[in-house]
């Protein structure tokens, strides 16, 4: 690890003041420390946010506000979350291990880097790590890579499970910018597609801090499912994952939400499938059509062609779980 200066910020204002050109913020550290050990990130200064950012979950008039320092395990087992947004809890518990969930923060989960092997191996080319060095995965080992929204520069996927549930639940991200202004960003617009500059994972301005996320009240707490398919049953990143939720009136679908992890550079919403299901009946036939609509636009790479059929089956199964499991 490269030597660095460490300071603990008392509040977000002082954190922003402490920040400089080669500084980085740290909260849980479960991804950043690892990246520093591998010399992928080499900040001159670390600014500890653990005391500066809220770790509270609070009820608001139209939803719930989650401080960016709330630990993943706290969030997953919070009674308010289990009651209002159980899909979020389910997704968090499918990610990482209990030890890591005890450490990882809500804000940090949004900012974790891809687990693409080419990003982690400093001997290999990766445009995300060294812009202009090329994408090793595009023509190389791309079993874990994206099937939609990728570019010739980058085929990496966003690794989070929590974020897949958050994008499905129309979350908003509250950020504090270095100029002192606060801004709310729609979760869907927070992460970005790689395009020609895959070194940027998201639209968070330089030096800005995620202070909280807010989830609006909804009726997706009865019929929901999070299905994660991976190389082993636990403690592995997703090959693909599906967050599905339905708001039902009898058998009529009033609203549908469908999102996936392991398919793109950002947590992916399948809006065509959602729009199709809205106003239809909750039947196996319709779920099949929704799944077919979703996979219509995907373009798998050499090693991940299996993701097409896997995704189609997982979407169908996930919607079936929404209506049969409870």
């Amino acid at each position: 690890m490269k030597p660095f200066e460490y300071s603990k910020a008392e509040n977000t204002t002082s954190a922003i003041k402490l920040a400089g050109n080669s500084s980085m913020y740290i909260s849980g550290g479960t991804n950043l420390i690892d990246l520093m050990k591998k010399h992928i990130h080499e900040p001159d200064k670390l600014i500890d946010l653990t005391d500066a950012v809220s770790s509270e979950i609070t009820v608001q008039e139209n939803g719930i506000r989650i401080g960016a320092m709330v630990r993943n395990s706290t969030l997953a087992e919070d009674s308010l979350i289990l009651d209002k947004f159980p899909l979020l809890s389910r997704a968090i518990l499918k990610g990482a291990s209990p030890q890591i969930r005890n450490m990882a923060s809500t804000g940090g989960n949004l900012l974790q880097r891809t687990r693409c092997p080419y990003f982690y191996d400093t001997a290999l080319p990766c445009n995300k790590r060294i812009p202009g060095s090329g994408c090793g995965a595009l023509e190389g080992n791309n079993r874990m890579s994206a099937v939609i929204g990728y570019s010739n520069s980058c085929v990496a996927v966003h690794p989070s499970d929590m974020c897949v549930a958050l994008v499905a639940l129309d979350t908003k991200v509250e950020i504090l910018k270095p100029d002192g202004n606060t801004e709310m960003i729609n979760f869907e617009d927070f992460h970005r597609l790689p395009g020609d500059n895959p070194q940027k994972d998201n639209n968070l301005p330089d030096g800005a801090i995620i202070t909280a996320i807010e989830i609006q009240n909804n009726s997706f707490n009865k019929n929901y499912d999070y299905l994660k398919l991976r190389e082993r049953e636990s403690y592995a990143f997703a090959l693909i994952s599906v967050a599905a939720a339905l708001e039902l009136s009898g058998n009529l679908i009033r609203e549908a939400r469908l999102a996936s992890g392991g398919v793109a550079h950002k947590p992916w919403r399948w809006k065509d499938a959602e729009n199709f299901l809205k106003g239809e009946n909750a039947t196996e036939e319709n779920f099949k059509k929704a799944a077919e609509l979703a996979i219509e636009k995907i373009a798998p790479l050499e090693d991940n062609k299996f993701k097409t059929e896997m995704l189609k089956g997982a979407i169908q199964q996930s919607f079936m779980n929404c209506v049969t499991n409870r």
Binding site: I26, G29, I33, D34, Q99, I100, N102, M103
Partner: peptide, 9 residues
């Protein structure tokens, strides 16, 4: 709480 000491500064 159980945590990983290798990723804790």
């Amino acid at each position: 709480e159980r945590r990983l000491s290798c990723l804790t500064l």
